[in-house]
């Protein structure tokens, strides 16, 4: 695993929904290269026919009865919202150029 290019790091930051400053892009790019090179060592391990572990202790698919029960009141659930209009959360334009 070679060093990540600046473009790869920028793409990754977009996928991760992170705004990174130029110095952060440089630093994280170089750190990721080092860490991934180390972690790349697992590629050599033969895992033919080894099932991936999804959970540590086998549990049956947990389905519960569809019984209605009280849940968090709307006002409580919205208490931490940074910007509200009544029971709605306000966000800026979702499609660039449109109105919020």
């Amino acid at each position: 695993m070679a060093e990540l290019t600046r473009k790869e790091v920028e793409e990754l930051a977009l996928l991760a929904r992170l705004h990174l400053e130029p110095d952060e892009l440089d630093r994280i790019g170089s750190e990721l290269g080092t860490i991934l090179a180390y972690f790349g060592t697992i590629a050599a391990v033969d895992t033919t026919d080894v099932p991936p572990m999804t959970h540590a202790v086998p549990v049956d698919l947990a389905l519960r009865a569809d019984d209605p029960a009280p849940s968090l009141p709307v006002a409580e659930a919205l208490r931490g919202a940074p910007k509200r209009d009544g029971d709605l959360i306000v966000v800026p334009a979702i499609i660039p150029g449109s109105e919020s």
């Binding site: 929904r17 705004h19 990174l20 400053e21 940074p82 800026p92 979702i94």
Partner: peptide
């Protein structure tokens, strides 16, 4: 930055996500 916690405002949603998380 939408439902709870810190928000850094931006003119577009994607930028709001990225600025808030950054």
């Amino acid at each position: 930055g939408v439902r709870y916690g810190k928000r850094v405002d931006a003119s577009e949603l994607l930028e709001l996500y990225r600025r808030t998380r950054g």
